[in-house]
């Protein structure tokens, strides 16, 4: 593995972050014979992936492609690649972005697949990348991508959005022929807002499931959630059509319907009476929806926007409101024209 030749050979792509999604994406690429490296912070994890071909912490019981090689040498891997795919939780995103920034060059492309917002600053991940690196060709990958289904080789799709056409054009062929269809787009803001916001709706949908409210109620929540998401996104500068695409309704459908989704699980367990502390303590992975709710709630207040579902979820997570009460309160809000707020932008 460490002969001189392989060390200096050019890579197709470097995936930064050995969590569930990062490992899944890297596995798909390795399976397509792409020259890919997976960077993990912990040396033991890289070693496990290289030797055992497993990632037991994040993808227990799943065999990874033999060709998938992991590393914990960020600098060396960065020098060998043109394309970097960042899959790091929003909480540690800035830190890793800064490390990457030490070796990154202006011709390199950086795409991230993190569905979250930086809580303290309300910055989107592309903004963090812009601040912490010299990269300009920045993009975001998002869509209905439940890791377990991805690993099982089931078909799905995702959107790569970037202001730079080249970004989509370089990422698409890497996944060509795989079960992950990559579409390209330009609306970075919409894609990032959708990716983060849908986790809040997933929490609400999970809670509705936990309460056993049925499919009609859940559909109501998801649809109105989509409308809130679009309103909020448009106010931040997004293109409203993005929310009707893979990164919007596409991701929302998967996350809100599937019990595989972490945020959905959190909502469901809260509805069944567990406390947030208990739920979070028992999870090995990050449920981005929890901090995102706080961030979006505060930002919406600053923007003088009313987002009823976000407020309800925030109440449950941070203000000790009971799930059933919050859901019933949602039914009591005054209703007007369904699409008025979106149509008359």
């Amino acid at each position: 593995m460490t002969s001189k030749n392989t060390r200096s050979a050019k890579l197709d792509i470097l995936v930064v972050g050995g969590g569930t999604f990062g490992t899944s994406l890297a596995s798909i690429l390795a399976g397509r014979q792409r020259k890919v490296r997976l960077w993990t912070r912990r040396a033991e994890q890289a070693e496990e992936i290289n030797r055992e071909h497993t990632n037991h912490r994040y993808l227990p019981g799943i065999k990874l492609p033999v060709k998938l090689i992991a590393t914990n040498d960020l600098k060396a891997s960065l020098q060998r690649t043109q394309i970097v795919l960042m899959v790091i939780p929003s909480k540690s995103f800035r830190q890793v972005a800064r490390e990457i920034g030490d070796s990154l060059q202006g011709d390199q492309i950086v795409v991230h697949a993190t569905k979250g917002i930086e809580i303290e600053t309300f910055k989107r991940m592309s903004q963090v990348l812009r601040e912490e690196t010299c990269a300009l060709k920045i993009g975001v990958l998002s869509g209905p991508n439940l890791a377990r289904e991805l690993m099982a080789g089931r078909p799905t799709g995702a959107l790569v959005a970037s202001q730079y056409r080249e970004v989509g054009e370089r990422i698409q062929p890497l996944f060509a022929g795989s079960h992950l269809l990559i579409f390209s787009g330009r609306d970075v803001i919409g894609t990032e807002v959708a990716g983060a916001f849908k986790n809040i709706i997933a929490l609400a949908a999970g809670a509705a499931d936990g309460q056993g409210l049925g499919d009609n109620a859940k559909s109501l929540l998801v649809t109105r959630g989509l409308s809130e998401m679009a309103r909020f996104g448009v106010a931040l500068g997004a293109d409203v059509f993005t929310f009707g695409g893979l990164a919007g309704i596409g991701d929302l459908m998967a996350t809100c319907a599937s019990p595989l989704s972490r945020n959905h699980q959190v909502g469901e367990r809260l509805a069944k009476g567990e406390s947030l502390k208990q739920v979070l303590a028992s999870m090995t992975q990050v449920a981005e929806g929890v901090p995102t709710t706080r961030a979006v709630y505060l930002q919406a207040q600053q923007m003088h926007m009313t987002l009823p579902i976000v407020e309800a979820v925030h109440g449950v997570l941070y203000q000790k409101v009971k799930c059933d009460k919050a859901l019933h309160q949602l039914m009591a809000i005054p209703v007007g024209k369904e699409l008025a707020a979106l149509r008359f932008r």
Partner: peptide
């Protein structure tokens, strides 16, 4: 860059062959 680290600006305009090009 924003962090004050030096940037090799010539690299922003390289094409896939590593040559400066207009796009």
């Amino acid at each position: 860059d924003h962090r004050g680290r030096p940037v090799d600006r010539t690299r922003y305009v390289l094409d896939s062959q590593g040559q400066p090009a207009v796009d």
